[in-house]
Amino acid sequence: MADKTYPKWAKPALEFGPILAFFVAYLLLKDRSFEIGGTEYEGFIVVTAGFIPVFLISMAALWRLTGHLSRMQAVTAVLIVVFGGLSVWFNDPRFFKMKPTMIYLLFGGVLGIGLMRGQSWLQVVMDGMMPLTDRGWMLLTRRLMLFFFGLAILNEAIWRTQTEEIWVYFKTFGLTAAIFVFFITQGRLFKDHGLPEDDEG
């Protein structure tokens, strides 16, 4: 399945489409409440409930399209189901707002465990995507670990101190932009520790 050809827009559309759909739905329903089964739910909870199946369908379509899902995508899907489900079950948006914190703590912790063992587990996952020296991978892994921990702290600070709408903007655009900026700022590392494209080692 991995050899299938597909439009270039399909993969990013499936990866980012659910997030943008969540954002648009939130803007439309944020000031409304719904009574379901005798219980009143805010718009945020209703949007969260809809986001879970949309995200899972998108991931299933992505797997069918590309033939695989990354470990990060699989873990993210599980945490979305767990924390999104808790928010809906207990009618409490705090669980879903904590989800990015748990994701980044988990990813940062996993990278940290690898570093303590003298290994770059990031290299295991992404070696085919970015040809770097072993030292380059260790440096990138250490920086990414700290970056993930920083995002976890930032998410906690924002959802606990800012309005719900500000957090939704942060989750939709801020986190994505932060990850993009992080990799842009690693240009010197990629230059200093990159391997020639024809280097198999």
Results as ranks from 00 to 15, higher is better:
Met59Leu: 11
Ala61Leu: 13
Ala61Tyr: 03
Leu62Ser: 01
Trp63Phe: 08
Arg64Phe: 03
Arg64Trp: 07
Arg64Gly: 09
Gly67Ile: 01
Gly67Phe: 04
His68Met: 02
Leu69Pro: 03
Ser70Arg: 12
Val75Leu: 07
Thr76His: 13
Thr76Trp: 12
Thr76Gln: 11
Ala77His: 04
Ala77Val: 00
Leu79Lys: 11
Ile80Arg: 05
Val81Trp: 00
Phe83Thr: 04
Gly85Arg: 02
Ser87Gly: 08
Asn91Lys: 06
Asp92Pro: 05
Pro93Glu: 04
Phe96Gly: 11
Lys97His: 00
Met98Trp: 10
Met98Pro: 05
Met102Arg: 15
Tyr104Val: 03
Leu105Arg: 01
Leu105Gln: 01
Leu106Ile: 01
Gly108Pro: 05
Gly108Val: 06
Val110Pro: 10
Val110Phe: 02
Leu111Cys: 11
Gly112Arg: 10
Gly112Leu: 04
Gly112Ile: 05
Ile113Ser: 09
Leu115Pro: 06
Met116Gln: 14
Arg117Ile: 08
Gly118Leu: 05
Gln119His: 11
Trp121Ala: 00
Leu122Gly: 05
Leu122Phe: 01
Val124Phe: 12
Val124Arg: 15
Val125Gln: 12
Met126Cys: 04
Met126Glu: 02
Gly128Val: 07
Met129Thr: 14
Met129Arg: 15
Asp134Ala: 13
Asp134Asn: 14
Arg135Ala: 11
Trp137Cys: 05
Trp137Ile: 03
Thr141Ala: 09
Arg143Tyr: 06
